[in-house]
Design a protein around this nucleic acid. Structure first.
Lengths: 131, 131
DNA sequence: TTATTAATACAACTGAGTTGCAAATGTAAA
DNA sequence: TTTACATTTGCAACTCAGTTGTATTAATAA
């Protein structure tokens, strides 16, 4: 499957990500809040699912296991190549994709399929505001 | 706060982790299932919280954002030193603590406080069973 | 043994995410 | 354009991990 029709909800969701800063992720909660008056939350969940299947977005879990989405860079329908860490600020909640590569250790006798690295701390803006 | 009294629920939970293999983690869901006849789930959540505060256990989020706990190695009340990746098998669901160190990249202008690396794939046992 | 305070059970709740289905809508073909 | 039909959507109801408030029970120190 994948996104077939350019429906209003697809356009609206893609717009949210295009308006966003390039490295920023958006939580599903935030997307539902923003688009609540226009679309049902079920629709939002389903469109995000399909955009991920299509390699347009990638998802990951942030603090408290909440789901976040961000734009993909070099992904196709079947393969998400865009493997990078995510940084979540514990003070303002913002999440960024980090464009650094992380070397994952070899693990004997195990086959690695997915890697998720979530780094939490104080973001640039919160570092500059507070001492 | 921390654990003050050696109550039945504390003993029972610690026992679950001591019976377990050294590298294995246990999900809260599993602990509730196992101890359901003896203790209320609220109690289990609260005791696990305190055992983590005391540096006896550490917690992390596995697949689907579900909470897992495992024994700590060199942690104290105030500092969890035991930073390592976790491996979750996508076929049998088992989760292990990996005793390898991962080098986290420097991130300019940000202060790292927590790092969570979850590696998912096929575990040793599932590798040997299936081709 | 008693007094005190922490720990527990219970029930009710919260909230992110899911499911089933009828109605609406986009798209390709006529 | 119009038709036909599969896809998409809204809605309501649900699931289920985790939380909260409170009255009761149990561990510990004196």
């Amino acid at each position: 499957m994948g996104v077939i029709r350019k429906t209003k909800s697809v356009v609206a969701l893609l717009n949210e990500f295009n308006m966003n800063t390039s490295s920023g992720a958006i939580s599903v909660i935030t997307l539902i809040e923003r688009l609540d008056s226009k679309f049902n939350k079920t629709t939002i969940y389903r469109v995000l699912d399909k955009l991920e299947e299509d390699g347009v977005l990638h998802s990951f879990l942030g603090k408290n296991g909440l789901k976040w989405y961000a734009k993909c860079n070099n992904c196709s329908v079947n393969k998400h190549n865009d493997i990078h860490p995510h940084f979540q600020c514990l003070y303002c909640g913002k999440v960024d994709c980090l464009s650094v590569s992380v070397s994952i250790p070899k693990i004997p006798n195990r086959k690695i399929e997915v890697t998720q690295l979530l780094i939490q701390g104080k973001c640039e803006m919160c570092c500059s505001i507070n001492s």
